[in-house]
Amino acid sequence: MIGRPIDIPIRAENGDEPVSHGNALPLLHEVRHALERLLAAGEETVIDLRSIPMGPGDEARLEAELGTGEVSARLETAIGPSVALETRFPGVWLITHYNSEEQILSRFIEVTEVPAILRSQPEDVREGLDSLSEQLLQQTNE
């Protein structure tokens, strides 16, 4: 018989929901414990997402579960941009480091009030102070 496509064992992928291999949920439990520690003792936690076995769809599922919150900051460093995103859950940040071609170098979940990388660093402040002083000096000279 010709033309009975229904018999061909092909299953259409459901595009609505990301396929998950169940590795996102245990991670979210870990994040919940980290938040409890942050509240109780002020203890900060960093989770390296590269150290966790992720199946296809797991990372998308994780991102979807975490959602986006009030803060999204983009850093432009000399070795490429970085994005620090506060998730739907305050205190849970998703930090993504890119190279200058916007490929992901590393990815972390940080459970903290402010990710350290967002703070101005004393070394950079000192350098900034120097260049401001120099700028003012030049304008005074003009």
């Binding site: 590393s106 972390f108 660093q121």
Partner: peptide, 13 residues
């Protein structure tokens, strides 16, 4: 021209 922030990113990676 890599800032301290850039260096921190380098170290984390």
């Amino acid at each position: 021209g890599v800032s301290r922030r850039g260096f921190m990113k380098f170290c984390a990676t």
